[in-house]
Design a protein around this nucleic acid. Structure first.
Lengths: 341, 341
DNA sequence: TTGAAAGCGCTAACAT
DNA sequence: ATGTTAGCGCTTTCAA
């Protein structure tokens, strides 16, 4: 191979022109062969394919994207890829994208709206074909930015304006289910560790839990913080100072529940004998056996896969009316919850 | 805004030409203003900036990349983004890339070489500026593919041919440290759960542990499988059938150690009283308190950040000689290990 | 069945 | 300080 020892030293990228010259045909013929599209006689096809191989030709993606107005790339903007819930979603999105030879860009907003807007601007400029967005708060500005540019976008996890597609879970229903179960176990005094109220998931889970619990004689106190481990710890300490103490804690997302477990451990409280702890969002499948945490589990993989598929559909057919898809959740009872003592 | 109500219905993308026309200048002037580079009189600069704003102009990334031969995008190819070790690396890489307004593409190979090659081909075509690769086995083909095209590439986590840059941890040393400690605790019969021997990390950890343990009178049996939870479970069951049983298990990566914990739990064995379990790779910081697993912890975030910085350096200066950077590890003793009973 | 011409949107180089 | 020209590498007409 590399019979023509010349000019390969600096490995300049081979262009379609060079292939054409080598094969003694026009560039269009090469293009037809490479894309396997359009009429080319067998003899020519073979000659061209050979030249492609010999020269190591690879079409230039930027040129192609410029011409085609298409990049075969989508973007996934999440708050934090290290959140296992979003990690699983990312995996699913990439799996689906990969099926149709699409590439996936990702970015972390850390729940910051300005960061979210910055990413949206970047991918808009880059010319991705579509965006999957976990909105920081309501994502309004970023979503409208996309819409104004005709860029297909699907929100994930958090409810947004009905003008946009959204794929998420039934937060309210899931939280209500958990409330039912804790009530059944005899609990009546609850602490909820919640996030910012503008984050729909937090709002809905608080709402779902509170309404159900109060309807059945429970007493609920909500503590608001950020969706972080640190705030989970902090809020738990505050919550456990109440007198009388809550007998069950519901943390509305996984980071908060990790924090809660840390804090009750540090306080020397036994789980679940002295206090029950339950969360929302499961762990990645590989770790599901460890923190024996009772959770409302969301089908993260399915959520990501569905969102990605939905995005590709929307890319194909931008006229589709926006949809709000809510997947059901499952209560997974493990050993961090138990009967009231 | 949008004073000129015409032609914005289908939100065609605005080009530099239209901005130039609107501002009554040439395209180069617009280009200069947009990039903030080159001489432009203040009065003109203001007029152009206004036109940009009014028209909602955003440079076309594909056109720019075609012209500049640069995409401001790097790729991160890992075996599985849901592996917390790689998740943390991904976060670090994206953080560093973001500092210089670069975007990050990611792909999962699932340890398959053909998948690895496929991603390499895709990003080569896309024209990314550089690649961060966690090689499936030795990554030879994929790395050479990049090299042949003059695409900067840095290997992460696993040793590769010295012809390439590599950022990883001192697997051998870390494993030896763990062996020392387990010996100190009185253990003499060890089972190692290892991955494929072509994966350097697995090989080095086995080697590091075995040499140290055997030098001090330990007896080591190695069980090979894939780096998965399922194989961690399977190998543990096999290992625990030995007679006499090992008193300590060392799993060379986190998935294997999760599997080990699952299996010993299922076998009804008490950890660490009946068997000690230790792993390699820590959990994400948010979860670090849970499976009270003793591990050789790798500075995953620093590893990812260093690799990314190294890649950007190499992009800037392709002539740099390749380096093999090995970061030190830390033994984190938690409650899954204890004295031999 | 094949090729030539034009142009996607941008910027480096060169005028002016 | 600003504009003109040319061309990055590709594919969509359109003509042969």
């Amino acid at each position: 191979m590399d019979a023509n020892g010349e000019e390969r030293l600096v490995s300049r990228r081979v262009t379609i022109k060079e292939v054409a010259k080598r094969a003694g045909v026009g560039t269009m013929t090469v293009s037809r062969v490479v894309r396997n599209h359009g009429y080319v006689s067998d003899s020519v096809r073979i000659r061209v394919a050979e030249a492609v191989r010999e020269l190591g030709y690879r079409p230039n993606g930027s040129a192609r994207s410029l011409r085609l107005r298409r990049t075969d790339t989508i973007a996934l903007i999440v708050s934090d890829i290290t959140n296992p819930f979003f990690t699983t979603i990312a995996r699913a999105v990439e799996d689906v994208a990969s099926e149709s030879d699409n590439l996936v860009l990702f970015g972390n907003t850390d729940e910051s709206e300005s960061s979210e807007i910055r990413y949206m601007e970047m991918v808009l400029q880059k010319g991705v074909d579509g965006v999957l967005l976990v909105p920081a708060t309501d994502g309004r500005v970023a979503l409208e930015l996309a819409q104004a540019s005709g860029l297909p976008v699907v929100a994930i996890d958090r409810r947004v304006s009905p003008a946009f597609d959204c794929v998420r879970c039934d937060s309210e229903g899931g939280a209500a289910l958990l409330a039912d179960r804790l009530l059944e176990l005899g609990h009546r005094r609850f602490a909820i560790l919640g996030g910012p109220d503008e984050v729909s998931t937090s709002h809905d889970r608080i709402q779902g839990f509170r309404l159900r619990a109060e309807a059945k004689g429970g007493q609920v106190t909500v503590y608001h913080g950020k969706l972080t481990v640190v705030d989970g710890e902090r809020l738990t300490r505050v919550a456990m100072e109440a007198n009388p103490r809550p007998t069950a804690i519901f943390a509305v997302n996984n980071f908060l529940s990790f924090g809660a477990l840390n804090a009750v451990g540090a306080l020397g409280l036994n789980v679940p004998d002295e206090v029950s702890v339950a969360g929302f969002d499961d762990l990645p499948e590989s770790m599901v056996n460890f923190p024996f945490l009772t959770v409302v589990s969301q089908p993260a993989y399915e959520l990501g896969a569905l969102a990605a598929r939905h995005l590709f559909e929307r890319i194909q057919n931008p006229a589709l009316p926006p949809q709000d898809l809510a997947l059901p959740t499952t209560l997974r009872e493990r050993s961090s919850t138990g009967p009231r003592r």
